[in-house]
Simulated scan of single mutants.
Amino acid sequence: MKHDRILLAHGSGGLMSQRLIDEIFKKAFNNDIMEPMLDGAILDLPAGKLAMSTDSFVITPLFFPGGDIGKLSICGTVNDLLACGAQPLYLSTAFIIEEGLPISDLRSIVASMAETARQVGVKLVTGDTKVVEKGSADGVFINTTGIGIIPAGIDYLPQRINSGDKVIVTGNIGDHGLAILAQREGLSFSTPVLSDCAPLYQLKDMIDKYQDAIRCMRDPTRGGLATVLNEIAVQAGVGIRVKEADIPVSVAVQGACDMLGMDPLYMANEGKMVIFVAAEAAEDFLNDLHKMSQTENAALIGRVSPEPAGMVLVETELGAERILGVLEGEHIPRIC
């Protein structure tokens, strides 16, 4: 590259656009499907139902402890596909880049995306790049769309949740939200907090093993654990009861939230999954999660009940029950 920053000419569609694509994106993402450089990707898909998910990432700052916007963009879409019970296969990506973004930052973001995709075993097969005037995009915005295949017999819908099913979360909650807040506001803690940003590809083995004993999965990103539980309670028409003492929260996150007057139950996560599991399979399921590096802190936090339908109740450490409501307003803006 002859320039060290993005220029409007990089979005012109001419020679500078082609150099940007060849030297940044194609070099990092190249594979047999992308190589022809057609207007779209031509894909071979195995038998099964197709799952498709799309997400846009506008996080600030672009780089944070534990990740960056590139890693986040892959993790977010891959985890959405896994929540559907799908094996992620292919991703597309689109960049809206602000004039003046350092080329070195773009290289780092793209390299992070490529490495995360390789970890998961997905291919980035097509994409798009646009450049906008300085002040229009806060560095870079990224959209990713993913395609995966759902095996026969897998149908993870809230309507499959039954009274008595158990609620499991795959690890400590609130790490991502606090890491972003600390980086953005220049806060420091005696124990540094890293984002949990990660692609949960190890869950594919759990899907293969437990199949329909898994009722439903959802990743608790914006709005956190509390918001996801409320969404599922309404969609499934059931009550959900959780125990506050059983919800895994690191000492650092809990201490920081207490100091700042925030609730970790509403903090964003980018490497966790909430899983509803048939009661008879829950103990074995949890034990298997503990054997995997991505989910070694998984915990059984509650159960499903027929009443109160559409509501989430949390049992406090004092033994009282309170309603766990939906997040109102923006807890922390621009979190993903």
Score class of each variant (00 low, 15 high):
residue 259 M to N: 13
residue 246 D to T: 01
residue 269 N to R: 02
residue 270 E to W: 12
residue 248 P to V: 04
residue 280 E to A: 14
residue 267 M to V: 08
residue 252 A to N: 14
residue 271 G to L: 05
residue 282 A to V: 04
residue 252 A to H: 13
residue 245 A to V: 14
residue 258 D to G: 05
residue 249 V to A: 09
residue 248 P to I: 03
residue 272 K to I: 02
residue 256 A to N: 08
residue 248 P to Y: 00
residue 274 V to T: 15
residue 258 D to C: 09
residue 266 Y to M: 00
residue 234 V to L: 03
residue 274 V to A: 07
residue 262 M to A: 14
residue 237 G to H: 03
residue 255 G to A: 15
residue 251 V to N: 11
residue 277 V to M: 13
residue 244 E to Y: 05
residue 232 I to H: 07
residue 265 L to M: 14
residue 264 P to L: 12
residue 264 P to W: 11
residue 262 M to D: 10
residue 270 E to V: 08
residue 244 E to I: 02
residue 229 L to C: 02
residue 239 G to L: 10
residue 260 L to M: 14
residue 276 F to Q: 04
residue 234 V to Q: 07
residue 263 D to K: 06
residue 230 N to V: 06
residue 268 A to S: 15
residue 261 G to P: 09
residue 276 F to G: 01
residue 237 G to Q: 01
residue 232 I to T: 13
residue 267 M to C: 12
residue 278 A to D: 14
residue 252 A to M: 14
residue 281 A to E: 11
residue 236 A to M: 09
residue 270 E to P: 09
residue 273 M to P: 07
residue 261 G to I: 08
residue 230 N to L: 08
residue 246 D to F: 09
residue 248 P to F: 02
residue 260 L to R: 08
residue 277 V to H: 06
residue 258 D to H: 13
residue 232 I to S: 03
residue 269 N to M: 08
residue 279 A to M: 03
residue 236 A to W: 12
residue 279 A to V: 00
residue 260 L to W: 13
residue 259 M to A: 14
residue 229 L to R: 00
residue 277 V to P: 05
residue 238 V to A: 01
residue 276 F to P: 02
residue 250 S to R: 09
residue 251 V to M: 11
residue 272 K to H: 11
residue 239 G to P: 08
residue 281 A to L: 04
residue 269 N to V: 05
residue 268 A to P: 04
residue 240 I to M: 12
residue 254 Q to P: 02
residue 280 E to M: 02
residue 241 R to A: 11
residue 230 N to Y: 06
residue 237 G to R: 00
residue 265 L to T: 13
residue 236 A to P: 09
residue 234 V to T: 06
residue 254 Q to A: 14
residue 240 I to R: 06
residue 243 K to P: 00
residue 251 V to C: 08
residue 229 L to F: 07
residue 249 V to I: 15
residue 282 A to L: 06
residue 230 N to I: 00
residue 230 N to G: 08
residue 247 I to C: 04
residue 246 D to K: 05
residue 233 A to C: 05
residue 240 I to W: 03
residue 283 E to M: 12
residue 278 A to C: 07
residue 282 A to H: 01
residue 270 E to M: 14
residue 272 K to F: 06
residue 282 A to G: 05
residue 271 G to Y: 04
residue 282 A to S: 15
residue 272 K to R: 15
residue 244 E to D: 10
residue 279 A to F: 05
residue 245 A to N: 13
residue 274 V to D: 00
